[in-house]
Design a protein around this nucleic acid. Sequence first.
DNA 1: TACGGGCATTAACATTTGTTAGGCCTGCTT
DNA 2: AAGCAGGCCTAACAAATGTTAATGCCCGTA
Lengths: 239, 239
Amino acid sequence: MLESLYLNLGQHDALSDAEKALLAGAMTFERHFATGQDIVASGSRPTYSTLILDGLAARYKVLEDGGRQFTSLQVPGDFVDLHAFLLKTMDHGIVALSPCHVMFADHSRLRTITEQAPHLTRLLWLDTLVDGAIHREWIVAMGRRSKTSHLAHLVCELFVRLQVVQRTNGMSFHLPLSQAEMADVLGLSVVHMNRVIGALRKVGVVSWANHAVTILDWHRLQDIAEFDPTYLSMMREPR
Amino acid sequence: MLESLYLNLGQHDALSDAEKALLAGAMTFERHFATGQDIVASGSRPTYSTLILDGLAARYKVLEDGGRQFTSLQVPGDFVDLHAFLLKTMDHGIVALSPCHVMFADHSRLRTITEQAPHLTRLLWLDTLVDGAIHREWIVAMGRRSKTSHLAHLVCELFVRLQVVQRTNGMSFHLPLSQAEMADVLGLSVVHMNRVIGALRKVGVVSWANHAVTILDWHRLQDIAEFDPTYLSMMREPR
DNA sequence: TACGGGCATTAACATTTGTTAGGCCTGCTT
DNA sequence: AAGCAGGCCTAACAAATGTTAATGCCCGTA
């Protein structure tokens, strides 16, 4: 059941059986969320952290004018709010973008891990660092890439991340977001989001229909995106 | 000499004398960097992490077309590349935006801290988590705020962060960035950056000249920015 | 003192992006 | 079967942002 988590953490460094057992021991109950439901509310002070077993979720903030911005997309194997273990107060919400199957890890047991399992602690820390690296890449994309390049970069990133947790199917993956939701990822209007998706389709590097994205020309897509996966730290080495 | 670091880490939770000693013990040599010099090179694999004692620095990425985007600004007391301790390979560069006085902490000694000082480890982890929270706020600003609001938000954030490490002077602080550099922060052209700064000046909430920023109307500035400092986790509580 | 470079500022114009509105599907409900 | 809601897509126009170029200022240096 925790296979995705093991794949996710294990991509950076070897994960021992004892460590897997410690992780499993930190888990409490599981739960399902329907599309659109809040998994964690902004401003709350959770006493557990949420692991996604299956489904797609996103962090978001809402502004006074009603505008919404997603700040990350979370795939199976992601600890969506590991932050709250130390940050205490959630400064953003987390919403299910598809039906989500999640499991909760008690903060008190995570704390025990930090007291007794330094290497596993470093791997969990690393998980949040990769999260930050992804944020930086998004900032670069929002600030200095063309919108087409930004979208291409996102497609590359999602494909690679989903591949790690075995959620791709050949060169395709399931992306349950509507174009309005995609617009809240890239920070665009819906109309322009539609234009940009159209542009990417037109160059022929992806097909995108019915929430299924297929990469038709990985090399050219990567080129448009200037995608370099270094920031995802997928190299397995001692940490 | 490490006062800024103690102030920075200590804002989130009490820092014991033993922990301060451990931090001091992790430090090796110090060094000065001139404005514009690279403190850490993109793609390098440092064996130490860099603490800013004095000066302003920034993380950045450069794209193929020469465009540059800053992904964070780093103030005294910030561990600019604590990431590299676990990420290993730098996926971005760090440049001095003013003369910088820095000190290096050996990764091997940081590792010892993770083995022997769980609470201090959590505080260091937390430091990187706040970093991520700042990134998220930047993403929201880039995606969904007006440019004026984005700039106002940045001014609020810098003021608060500098205040923690006692680098403010009343309602003023020193901001050594040129408008071209500011443009690389917000992801704008230089010309538009100039317009936006002009707009903020015109409403009369800040004065901005000779690299000195003075907040003339904090309340209204905060209002324009929709600035809520929760994300900085400045509350002192057990972590 | 004269010169040149970097920086802030502005103008004029080009391009990108947002807004408003509507059409056309599809799937679901009555 | 009719009606309705949501999602995708397009058009026409408005607003924001980028580009190019020019001006003036300050400052360090020949």
